[in-house]
């Protein structure tokens, strides 16, 4: 799903889908960290500098997993709200048409209560909807910020790998690559989701 879709139901649903995927990818990061940890234990003194880095990878994984889940939940709420908003928007459109068509009718006034109530509901929904979007934007920005540390982590991993003995060098370099690739994949989901947020507004 590369192109940005033009409809807000689809936009909210596809953010949820992207973040669902991001959660799975982030879980792989945790696996990478555990493997790296096992590797440094085997490598002993020669990879001592690598060990604290595995903690950092774990931390990055935990943060991305938990915020992906959070964003996913927000997107699910938004997609329900988008439908509700559509329903109250179109109810008002229908009421407006009635006011035109039934001009001069004896009981037209009897509609005004419902009309006002629907209008109020729509306004409330709009406010809640905007708040949710803001919350979503903040969460997306937060994950993106965390993911920036992945680049540094990768470089640090590479430096430590180059100081480890030849036996473990390749495996440790591989960890570095993994961290970068996984972070990149998650970032793609976030960037796509931020584009979709623009449609929701």
């Amino acid at each position: 799903m590369s192109e940005v879709s033009s409809n807000y139901f689809v936009a909210a649903a596809s953010i949820a889908a992207k973040l669902d995927y991001a959660t799975k990818v982030a879980q792989r990061l945790s696996l990478t960290a555990s493997n790296a940890r096992a590797l440094t234990l085997r490598a002993g003194q020669s990879a001592a500098g690598f060990r604290p880095l595995t903690d950092a990878i774990h931390r990055l994984s935990d943060i991305t997993v938990s915020s992906s889940k959070k964003i996913n939940a927000i997107a699910a709420v938004l997609s329900r709200m988008a439908v509700e908003k559509y329903r109250s928007d179109s109810a008002l459109k229908y009421f407006d048409a009635v006011y035109l068509q039934a001009q001069g009718s004896r009981h037209l006034d009897s509609l005004s209560d419902v009309y006002e109530r629907t209008k109020l509901k729509q306004k409330e929904l709009m406010t809640q909807y905007q708040q949710k979007i803001q919350q979503l934007t903040q969460e997306l920005e937060a994950v993106e910020g965390e993911l920036r540390s992945a680049v540094v982590l990768k470089v640090l991993c590479q430096i430590e790998a180059s100081q480890a003995g030849a036996t473990y060098q390749d495996a440790l370099n591989n960890v570095a690559e993994n961290v970068e690739n996984i972070a990149e994949t998650i970032k793609e989901q976030i960037v796509f989701s931020r584009q979709q947020v623009a449609i929701l507004q």
Partner: peptide
């Protein structure tokens, strides 16, 4: 069920 359905479907295939 619509929004739950659309969200579930879109995890499998793009809307288009």
């Amino acid at each position: 069920l619509f929004s739950a359905m659309l969200s579930a479907v879109i995890k499998e295939v793009p809307a288009q």
